[in-house]
Amino acid sequence: MSEAQDVIQIKDLDVKYGWGRNSVQVLHGVSLNVPAGCTVGVVGESGSGKSTLAKTLVGTLTPTRGTVMIDGVNVSSVRGAERLKLRRKVLQMIPQDPFSSLNPRHTIGEALAEALDPRHANVKKHRGVIAEWLERVKIPAEAMYRYPHEFSGGQRQRVAIARGLIPEPTVVIADEITSALDVSVQAEILSLIANLRRDLNLTMIFISHNLAVVRQVSDEVAVMYQGQVVEHGRTSELFSSPQHSYTQSLLRAVPGTPEFSIDPGITEPTSHENRAIA
């Protein structure tokens, strides 16, 4: 696959938090290329740098070394009209928490109108488009006049997805979008995302700590560990024959997989009786 087809090109990315002596380096030379229309799942445990990667991809964090090119544009150095175009038309992010990602004082319609037109956000003018998108994420169109607190977590996440996709981006960053949801709702959201990404031919980075979830929606999987991508490959291959020892231990730890064992092993025989202190 040639370089030109890779919509997302991440090269030797270093990211630090803080200044001077107190700085902490979170990403260490992360490189990742994503071809058009492909979904890469990024898995890793807390502190592995997944969310930092997402923030750097959308430009809220500036890398200390390396570049992020999205659709041929350097995310961290682009300014002005080009940046606006990148943020509006090319790249969108779907945030994790459906409870804090919608302004409680705005109706659903206002939230979506703002995504369509950040300057004026006129619900009346865009009513048709908003209704269409709400139907697309399986929410009745009249919901546009209601406020977020009237909806469940799953419904809000649908609205958040609609808001992310309504500017018709080509690249979508989804950061733990199902981790705040119940499993049945999670299943609905995952199938929604799977359908939308096919229909709209999205290029997607899907971040999650849940291996099973990543496995369901991704074409490729990248495993992050301590700020590095330790393994990256086709989903089926990575899950059937993990190469890196960390990936192997990650897969072993999931209850329900054949490799998982609850057996705590033999431990020193401290019985209840002789634990009591004389």
Binding site: F151, S152, G153, G154, Q155, D182, V183, S184, V185, Q186, A187, E188, L190, S191, A194, N210, L211, A212, V213, R215, Q216, V217, T235, S236, F239, L251, V254, G256, T257, P258
Partner: peptide, 27 residues
């Protein structure tokens, strides 16, 4: 439905779908 909704590592890909008898308003 709960079992079907739970993503399983040994599942065939992609997402299986099954009607969950939960109204969308789970709050």
């Amino acid at each position: 439905a709960l079992l079907a909704a739970t993503p399983d590592m040994s599942d065939p890909l992609p997402v299986r779908q099954r009607a969950v008898p939960v109204s969308t308003d789970s709050t």
